[in-house]
Design a protein around this nucleic acid. Structure first.
Ligand code: FES
Ligand code: FES
Lengths: 143, 143
DNA sequence: GATAAATCAGACTAAATTATCCGATATATG
DNA sequence: CATATATCGGATAATTTAGTCTGATTTATC
């Protein structure tokens, strides 16, 4: 079991944070990301490919090719990656699985969950990924 | 995609809340729960069977049989159902999927997630399921 | 131009989750 | 005792998610 994101999304977040932490370098090959983050190479490669379609990363093919952020890391938020991979339905669904989370017809956890949900959303939107650079570097070097 | 619990767990939570909301009645057949909550009958039946093994509900076989809470709803918390079905690993895993969530080696979201995680835990432990009775009745009658 | 190293595209496989089916057994009721 | 209505247990099916494989194409470098 993952915590709240799918495995694909966890990997996507890790990989993008990894790219953001390498800001001076050109493109990074999928293999390096795979090795450093222990994500199957073909899998992380696929995920990054899909993120190029979302305009979050760019790729360069051929020898010494790889992936890089598509824009200034100050202009990318974690929510962008989540939206591109898992979508945002978790922020409008009922935590107990009842159909249509709706304040007019709240489930027993609606109020408490509503607060947590907005804080979770804030966690993914308050900071851009450039802000996480040092923390990411520290985490990566511990792996 | 579910929000944070598996489908099985969502159904389990709904079903147990349903049972708790019927406190005056004897046992409730799986078919009624299935109809009221729109959960496949065989599936909710299986889930409740597994919850009998966890000591949360009891069952009576045969005609006019069904399921009921195994103990005073004041002594059951939502976390009990989550623990029995999804387990508690989500409360000790890294939200970004890094191995071993650990304050010594925090990922970029560790601190913020840590707060949310304890509030989510509190949401599941602060109240017993008897406390949710009226809210559950209201929600069910809206379905 | 040859070679090596990379993404890309799509089919494929594996595993986990979700859901169904069936036959056995239990039990209330007449 | 017969019948109807439940759970129980185990197998199976369907769907979704996770991961792999292969061959094509692109590009840097010698
Ligand atoms: S109705 Fe359940 S979270 Fe809103
Ligand atoms: S290390 Fe990521 S949540 Fe603790």
């Amino acid at each position: 079991m993952t915590v709240i994101f799918s495995k694909k999304c966890e990997y996507g977040l890790q990989a993008v944070l990894y790219l953001a932490a390498q800001s001076e370098r050109e493109v990074i090959p999928a293999e390096e990301i795979s090795n450093k983050l222990s994500i199957p190479k073909e899998f992380v490669s696929k995920i990054l490919q899909s993120l190029t379609e979302s305009g979050i990363v760019i790729s360069r093919k051929g020898k010494s090719g790889g992936f890089a952020l598509a824009k200034d890391p100050k202009r990318i938020q974690l929510i962008d990656i989540v939206a591109a991979i898992d979508g945002l339905s978790m922020f409008s669904s009922c935590v107990l699985g009842f159909p249509h989370c709706n304040p007019e017809n709240p489930c027993p956890l609606h109020d408490k969950w509503g607060e947590l949900r907005s804080k979770a959303y804030a966690m993914l939107t308050d900071e851009n990924i450039d802000h996480f650079r040092n923390k990411t570097l520290r985490k990566i070097s511990s792996l």
